[in-house]
Structure formats: structure tokens, C-alpha cells
Design a protein around this nucleic acid. Sequence first.
DNA 1: TATGCTTCCTGTAGTCGCTACAGGATCAAG
DNA 2: CTTGATCCTGTAGCGACTACAGGAAGCATA
Lengths: 129, 129
Amino acid sequence: MATIGEASLRSGVEIETIRYYERKGFVPKPGRSGNGRRVYSPSAIANLRFIKRCRDLGFPLHVASRLLVISMGEQVKCGEVQNFGQAQLAETRSKIAELESLRTALEELVSNCEEGSTNCPMLEKLWSQ
Amino acid sequence: MATIGEASLRSGVEIETIRYYERKGFVPKPGRSGNGRRVYSPSAIANLRFIKRCRDLGFPLHVASRLLVISMGEQVKCGEVQNFGQAQLAETRSKIAELESLRTALEELVSNCEEGSTNCPMLEKLWSQ
DNA sequence: TATGCTTCCTGTAGTCGCTACAGGATCAAG
DNA sequence: CTTGATCCTGTAGCGACTACAGGAAGCATA
């Protein structure tokens, strides 16, 4: 049984963030000790770590939370889990594609930019069309 | 001289967003007609389009706004413009790199996921370690 | 002229995922 | 007994919008 500070250290989730997750209902509410402080069991800490791993992979919080609920349910709904994974992968791929075309555009934008020229090619490109 | 609706159509910026930009000081305040409605000159509309092009390229609003101010100033500060462009390019590249490692991780996560298996490999990976 | 639809106005609150306080209570160590 | 760390609640801020509510005005048709 750990305090919120220990839970934070062991899960890698900031204290304020842990309280935020609780407030928003993304993780089950922990117990409280006599003095009103939150008390975290090892499995509660594991839950936080799970959420963190999901977030690090780009899953939105409500999906991370849903995956947690599925994990803790009677029978795991593997299809739903798979859907979330595929959706996140698709989103990640499309974000990459978007950023790559952005990168190309920015490279083109910056390429003609030389200090000291009377006009500013980058600004001109931004205004053109 | 155009209404906010026409300015929106011609610039591609939503009406609510135009008002938001004005409220936050990212674009100069437009004039008002006798009845109190906003009136947009062609150059004011061009400004909105400029901001939109910057936003589409990923520049944050305060940078887009600064580029606009620079454009309208006496002498253009090409060095500063170049810095913004390079910074945005660097940021875009690092975001791409980040997303690519994310994509790899997600592909690995999803790869073993098969409907109908008794356990759920994806969830297991999320819990492991 | 009356009606009804559209556009406009201001102001406020919600989104997402935190983060940063303020202002107080409690704990553990010296 | 004091000091400093940790905890508590509640609220506000970030960025870049978006979505109303509640009202005023304009425009077209009957």
C-alpha cells in the first residue's frame, strides 16, 4: 500500500496527473487512509503504468481507460482491443503522411531563404497564390 | 469591403475562428459599419489567408501573427523569418521521427493480435514489463 | 407591411490532457 | 517544537479552436 507520491514514482505518472485521471474517472478511485489520503495497492499502481504505456503509444485517454476496463473484465474482448490498436495505427500512419507533406512544403519554403536578400522569399511564398 | 461571412468564404477561415483571432489580437481589428458589423477590406482578407497558410504549415498562431507583423513592417527582418521556418522544420522532423517509432511499436503490438485467441496478445504486451 | 429566414453580434463554456497554482492540513525527522 | 516535505481540495491556465445562448439586424417574399 503506497501513497500517491510513491504511486507516482513507481508508475511514472505525475501526482497531479493521477488525481486528474481519478477526477475524470479514467482509473478506479483508490482507497483512503484514516487521515483522508489516497492509498494505492500494487494493482492500482500497475493500472497507472498500463495507462501510461497506452498514452505513450498515442492512445487517447478514453481508449486507454476502456482497454483497462476490458483487461479487468470477465472475458477479454479481443476484437475490440484489436480495433483500437488498428485505429491507432491508422491514425499514426496518416499523421506521419500529413507531417511528411508538411515537411516537404517547409523545406521548399526555407530553401530559398538567404540572409541579406532585399526581399524575403519565404514570406513571398507564404503570401503567393 | 466584405462581411465576416464573405471574409470567411474567401479566406477559408471559419467565422468563429476569425472572431477568435481578433479577440486574441492575432490579426488587426477590422473596421465596423454603421450597424456595428465587422467590415473586411481585401487586404484584411489576405491577412486571414496568410494566417491560414501559416497554420496549415504547422506554425503556431503567435508565430503566424508575428510573420504577419513582419510582413507589414517597414523593412522585413528576413533572419527572423528564416529562424521561424527552420524551427518549424526541425519540429516537424522530430515529430515525424517520434511518430515513426510509435508506428513501429504499434505495428508490433497489433501484429500478434488474432480474433478468437483465448488470450489477448495485445493486452498482454501492454501489461508486460 | 408583415413574416420568416439568414446573418450577424457578444459572451460564455466546452474540448483534450494535462499543469500550476492557492491555501490549507497533516506527517515525519531532528 | 519547529521545520520541511507531502498531502488535500478547488480552481484557472495552456493552444486553437468550437459550440452554443440569447438577442439584434438585414433581406426576400407574400
